[in-house]
Design a protein around this nucleic acid. Sequence first.
RNA 1: CCGGCGGUGGCGGAGUGGCCAAUCGCACUUGACUGUAAAUCAAGCGGGCAUGUCCCUGCGCAGGUUCGAAUCCUGCCCGCCGGACCA
Length: 382
Amino acid sequence: MNLQDKINLISRQTEEIITPEDLEFFLKSGEKLNHYIGFEISGKIHLGTGLVCMQKVKDFADAGVKPHIFLADYHTWINDKLGGDLDVIKKTAVGYFKDGLSLAYKCLGGNPKDLNFILGSEFYHNNDLYWQSVLEISKNTSLSRMQRSISILGRKEGGDVDFAKLLYPAMQVADIFCGGFHFSHAGTDQRKANVIARDVAKQLKFSPLKIGKDIVKPAAVHTHLLLGLEKPAVWPISESTDKSELQTSMKMSKSKPDSAVFIHDSIDEIKRKIKKAFCPEGEIEFNPIIDWAKYLIFSPAYRQAGETEKIIISRKPEHGGNLEIKNIDELKEIFKNKELHPEDLKKFVADYLIELLKPAREHFEKGEGKRMLGELEELIGK
RNA sequence: CCGGCGGUGGCGGAGUGGCCAAUCGCACUUGACUGUAAAUCAAGCGGGCAUGUCCCUGCGCAGGUUCGAAUCCUGCCCGCCGGACCA
């Protein structure tokens, strides 16, 4: 694979690369490159994590960058997820979560053996360098900036926070440097942490990131946050609506039960959730189903440029009969012109996902997988 | 450690001795309407069943006063705010 192919692969379907120049610089350097993405063990794995993030992980792997999946058990503990019980969190991390991400990777055609999992608490154990880095990062970041950064925990700025939560951003940044990761990959909601990482990069003495003798900044790669299936907080939208705010308010969330599909949802569950999803006819901008079609189905992962495979949306004859679609732009155009009814689109998306997620679903519906999932559901009250 | 305020259903938030299973809003469920969803309207929304002017549980926890307590008293736990101590 040549340089440009690698750049294209890593860049596609991203919201942002900080910076494209750094990306190119790393790929040109000839060094062995490391990718990183960290996950809180906060509950069931939804498609944002399982398909969108893991697809990008696969892109990195395919481009020859070694992928690392950081199971952030300490961060999860700090963020009071899973009852704030560290033992439970650890168990879930190395059990359910690791398996779930591996299965999701498999659904995408990847080989789970390529993934390198790191458990936070193990990584930190007897690791002076790590804690020194946490302090060094903290010394180079203001309190107010840390306070602003707690939005990366999925919490509102100025909300109730205990002090540990202010440590979280510094820890996340230290994870990047101590792991020696050149690429920090995350959803756009994690932008603040990655920007802090870049801002402090050149001031670190204990665990700087280096290419040759030069201290460099880690490149940040931000992937899309899938839209939740529920009606947005503000609707209909007007000219005064803050669109970026609307976008973030629409993000899929585990706390909103039916806004997300999980990688191991049953066939009926997938159908049910998608059927009741918000999907205004002719609306292509803030429409979760269109969004899902774009990122989960017409993603270049499955639809390579110049592809030959057809995508067929089946319809009853009285509704126009089967529809052949080449790419997402064509789909949007047709939908916008109301030539495709939302219900037909929904059925298509649901059927596609049902098929795509088959390996994950089957793993978690029997044996050890079922047991782990059951335990987790018990814990989070389903 | 001291003081002030506060802890009510999934959430927000009323109620401050009986009319309270607990106003109201949100969320949720169901039905009507749309070839989806949304919006709108109607019903339900602690648990149980024999579905009733029925039973049980219930307003941080544990006791107490009273014919009767979410409401009063005592103790404890937790939260927020302020102060003290320390320096």
